[in-house]
Amino acid sequence: MLLTMQAAPSESAALATYSAEVRQLLFQYVLQLADTSLILGHRLSEWCGHGPILEQDLAMANIALDLLGETRSLYQYATELEGKGRTEDDLAYLRSAVEYRNPLLVEQPNGDFAHTIVRQFLFDNFHYPFLKQLKSSPDERLAGIAEKAVKEAAYHLKWSSEWIIRLGDGTPESRQRVEKAIASLWRYAAELTTPTATEKALQEAGIIPDYAALQPTMAAHVARVLEEATLPTPPASSFGLAGGKEGRHSEHLGYILTELQYVQRAYPGLTW
């Protein structure tokens, strides 16, 4: 698929220069990014008040808030791309599980703290280098959102990396728990960097980063963190689980949305 785009002097002009086809692709893609940070933020916020140490309760709430901020900027952009008068809340609260586009990793349950950390680490290890590249997107809106979010993502990656190290090189129990979490979550990581048809088209158009180019940075960071954590490198997964980015989710998402959307669904059309 060949797509073209021109330099965009201003936001509204940028939207105007996209063909209907690109606009539709971008809408799908921005939704995917927004859904991803919303669902991961939701999961992290489930810890609020229940964390293992008050300081870490704060840290998780902080990361959840960053992700929620990113979510809102993305949904707002998505509503403009769609141009049908839907609001950020319509997108978050009135779509069903099969319409959600987040990768499977982020909807996985919190489990114990080790599972939360491994899930976060796998995500951050993609999110940070991805945003670093997205900053240079010719799409000014995405570039702007990335510019703000990348600083936060750098902190998130530092936080989750440090915890992988502490848990791996902590006590026998923490090591066993983090190994178990790695064994159960590693297979969801590949979906993050495996482009869907939508992503491929936008990559070919030069609007979003090529994930293959992120791989060396990601692999190097994983290797460095696992080494410092004295953890073995997990064997390359023979079968990565994927499908969330195309709406094929695990059963967990339905329950997340049931909670998330409860008030909006129970009292349709009201302002809160």
Binding site: L38, H42, S45, E46, C48, G49, L54, E55, D57, L58, A61, N62, A64, L65, L68, G69, T71, R72, Y75, E88, D89, A92, Y93, I256, E259, L260, Y262, V263, Q264, W272
Partner: peptide, 26 residues
């Protein structure tokens, strides 16, 4: 109510409020 807040804005305000409480505790 964080996971059930009825809008993204309210969710964000509520989460940061509860986070403030953790900070007060500290």
């Amino acid at each position: 109510w964080i996971t059930r807040a009825p809008s993204l804005k309210r969710k964000s305000i509520l989460l940061s409020k509860v986070q403030d409480e953790a900070g007060h505790g500290l």
